[in-house]
Every structure is written in structure tokens, then in C-alpha cells.
Design a protein around this nucleic acid. Structure first.
Lengths: 254, 254
DNA sequence: CGGCTCTTTGACCTAGTTCAAAGCGCGTGG
DNA sequence: CCACGCGCTTTGAACTAGGTCAAAGAGCCG
């Protein structure tokens, strides 16, 4: 099993996200990847729609948004990316990216070139399986988003958004109940397919009910159960006489 | 390069969809696949959400719908599948299918088992690349659907739906302007995230304008340009004084 | 012919958009 | 240190696209 060639490099085995990273199997072969640790800042672009597909990118820290261009000129945010996720998988289809990636905050990025990918595919069954797994998972996540767009109310969309963020943070060892949003309300509205005013109103309603506290970009989720109920249960929000402890109880027994 | 083992089999090189099929590279190795040519009928199920991932399925003829279950009990149609397409790619993520597949009409299916996939991945770079390509393309198509759900009006959704169907039929060598819908209005409504009544009304409007003719499940598209205008242009439908030849002209020069 | 599923049409109603305007926090320059 | 401007957020009021409800037509099969 050959070692991937390298220039400016960083051994995967010492990377702090190696346990979630697609490339973590590379530890075994003590491989190093070129271009690791490149830093980008807010509003920087990783690549643009139409750019040649040079490789895939692992986000080590920070966050970014994936923008799909539309004929009408404006762009649709198709995904927010967080640490551990892979960006650029859309490039396999035809050698060009169909979306752009723009960072929301200072972020550290690890690059795996097409050449390196091909070598890894040839030499590592594990890498091969992981890549398929990642792409398959993305397909499933997309399906979930489609359902969100096509049948959820705006309240449900925001509930799902907050819950997804929360589990995302938990997965990365951070607090799932208190975190900072790296995106603007406008970004959220765009991503969820609703008007920015509605985002504000719904978040306001959640806060009124005591389900969350929101201060600028700082979010505290007080009652996860109320959010899951909003998503899956019958209209919890429209029966204000039900108190919160009951909701929590209901969830625990469900 | 080894040959894939087989039981009841059919050589890929003689398959009528070999030029669009993922497995067509297998021609080179003169491989055969097990379980080829299994026939399913309307309302038959290929697999259900939660079922173990045994392999992927190529649809040789006919059509099917992919159903994503939701907590509320009802199902969302996440995709219609036609000849040449691969079904079951969602299984790579965790070894189980997240969606069900139900046939819309009598269909012929070719099965490629997990075992065969792994052998192919090991022995054929081409297969490997194709599989990534197919999944990446699916990711891109999903993004397009997300935009459709999140920002398009119901008219635009139906325009996109008809145009997509049309190009689909053309790709398979059939007429893109006259074809039979294999799905019900209810299916279309579910897929596009709208009420069935709205589907009827919009289709009725398209017909009134002379853009399409629709008779039961039989569709004739008279003016592709009007549909693309509906999708991308400014509100064509609300300026009835513009006649169709002008629209066609506009499109040709665009 | 009766019962079935699927489709169409009409009338009403509401969730969510659009438009308008004001509040608010933060960085920059004087 | 303050004032100004700018990007972002919030809130209110009016409007509408599209959903829901209801009922009737239309093909199809035993």
C-alpha cells in the first residue's frame, strides 16, 4: 500500500478531527495530505459554481454555506457545512462544481486532490467504502430536506433547523443547548425557503413560549421536546394550556 | 481482472440499455449478473424502508416511485425512476434502505449484489468512477429539486416536472413531446409538494393556453418554450397578449 | 349496473409573503 | 469619546397564492 505523495503537509494521524474525518483511515498508512490547514475567512470563497473539480475539501473547523446558482440571478443556500464534513462532492458528476462554497467565519480546510482520491480509491477499500457512505448519507439528508421543504410548515422547518444544529454541535463535542449561529437570519430564511420576516416571527414565538432564548446570534434551547413535538407531534404550539413539563414527560415516554 | 460469479444470469453486453447502464463497462470483462431480468408489476414493492441493503437495482424498463416514510405516517415521493436509472443507492449509508421503491407499471429490473459491487469496485476503476458519478449526479439533481421546493411557484414546479419528464424520454430515445404519465395526479401532487387540486388547476391552465394537451395520462407538449419561460422567464402566463411564436422566437435567441 | 378509483371544478379561508418603517449593535472616522 | 452610517433584525398591516372542503364527473372492472 503506497503512501500518498505530498508537498506542504500534515499527517492525518495528528489531526484533531481524525476520528470523524473521511481520511482518517489514512492514519494506518501514515499518509500526509497536501495543502492541509489552509485558512479562510468570512465571505471568502472556497470555489465557485462552474469551477473545475480539483478535489474535495474537509472542513476542520469553522462553517460555510453551499450556494446553488439559479437562472434568476439570486442564489439558494443548499447546505450549511460544519467541522468534519466534506465539501465538493458535487464535482464527481462532470468534473465541475455545481455549487459555490462561501465561508461564514474563519475556517480551516484540508484539501484532498483528485489525484490523491484516485490513489486512495485504488489502495484503500476502507476509503472507498467511506466515500460511498458519505455520499449516500448526503443523499438521505437531502431527502429529509426535500420533505422539509415540500410539506413542513415554517414553524416545523425552523424546529428542524434548530434540532439539526443542536445534534450537529453535540456530535462535535460541543453544547447542543447553547451555541452561536454563524449565519444571518437572511441566510436561514434562504436556506429554509421562507421570508426573513417569518424567520424572525417564528423565532420570536418560540422565545415567547420559553422554548428557546435568542439574543443576537446566541441561541439557548430550553426545551428540545417542544421542538420535536412541533416537528412530529400534533400542533403543540396552538394548545398553550399544555405546560412544558407535560411536554417533556410526553417526549420521555414516546 | 476476474469475472463476476453468477447463477441465473444474463450477459450485460446483450442488454438493451447497456449504453446507459452503470454496469455497461462489464461488457469488457464479459461479465454476467445474477437475478437479471426480474419482472415486477404495478404496486409491487422492490424493497421497503428499513430493509437490509442487499445491492443496487438498475431499472431496464418501466417506472417506479421512491417513497420516504415520515413520522406522520404518510409517505413522500422523493423521486420517480425510469429506465437506465439506479435504485437503492441510499443503502450504502448504513446498510439499510431509507426509502421504499414501488413500481408504477410492469418493469424489468437488474440486480447487482453488494458482493458483486465490491468485486467490481476492486477490479474496475471505470465502475468505481461511474458509481461516484451517478451518486454525485443524484446529489446535484436533489439540489435542483430543493430549489424547486423552496422557491418555485406551483406553476413553475409543474413546468419543471413536465420539462424533466420530456428530456428524460428524449434521453431514452422516445418522444419528448408526447408521452404517457405512469403516475397519478395524486403522485404528482405528493412529489411536487402541492395539493392535488392545484395540480389539476395548473395543468388545466396550461391546456387553456395551448401549451400542452392532456387527456387522461396522455400528455402532448405543444410549446416547450412556454414551459421554460414559465420556469426562468418573467411571468409569461400573466401577459396573455404575448403570442406563442414570439415566445418561441425569444427562446431560440436566448 | 353498482362500486371503485381517479380527476375536475367551485367557493371559501388561512399561512405566509410583501411592503413599509423603525430599532439596534458595531465599526469607522473625526 | 461621540456621531454617523451600515448591515442586520424586528414589528405591524395589508394582500394573495395556494390549501381545504365539498361535490360532482368520468373511466373501468367485476
Amino acid at each position: 500500500m503506497s503512501t500518498v505523495s505530498l508537498v506542504h503537509s500534515h499527517p492525518c494521524k495528528t489531526c484533531h478531527i481524525s476520528d470523524v474525518c473521511l481520511g482518517s483511515n489514512l492514519q494506518q498508512s501514515n499518509c500526509r495530505l497536501t495543502n492541509a490547514h489552509r485558512i479562510y475567512h468570512r465571505k471568502n470563497t472556497l470555489f465557485s459554481a462552474g469551477d473545475e473539480f480539483l478535489g474535495i475539501y474537509v472542513i476542520r473547523s469553522g462553517s460555510a454555506k453551499a450556494l446553488a446558482p439559479s437562472q434568476s440571478g439570486d442564489e439558494h443556500i443548499s447546505k450549511f457545512h460544519f467541522a468534519g464534513e466534506i465539501m465538493g462532492l458535487d464535482g464527481f458528476a462532470n468534473g465541475h462544481h455545481s455549487k459555490s462554497i462561501e465561508f461564514l467565519e474563519t475556517s480551516s480546510i484540508c484539501f484532498i486532490s483528485v489525484n490523491e482520491i484516485n490513489i486512495l480509491l485504488k489502495n484503500s477499500d476502507d476509503f472507498n467504502q467511506r466515500l460511498l457512505k458519505v455520499m449516500s448519507s448526503e443523499l438521505i439528508a437531502n431527502s429529509a430536506m426535500s420533505i422539509c421543504y415540500s410539506v413542513y410548515t415554517r414553524e416545523q422547518r425552523l424546529a428542524k433547523f434548530l434540532l439539526d444544529l443542536s445534534t450537529n454541535f453535540i456530535d462535535r463535542g460541543q453544547s447542543g443547548s447553547e451555541f452561536l449561529l454563524s449565519m444571518t437570519r437572511t441566510d436561514i430564511a434562504n436556506y429554509l425557503g421562507m421570508a426573513i420576516e417569518t424567520v424572525c416571527r417564528v423565532l420570536g414565538k418560540f422565545q415567547e413560549k420559553g422554548i428557546i432564548d435568542i439574543n443576537q446570534r446566541m441561541i439557548t434551547i430550553n426545551q428540545v421536546s417542544a421542538l420535536t413535538n412541533c416537528l412530529y407531534g400534533t400542533d403543540y404550539l396552538h394548545s398553550p394550556e399544555v405546560n412544558n413539563s407535560k411536554l417533556d414527560l410526553y417526549r420521555a415516554s414516546a
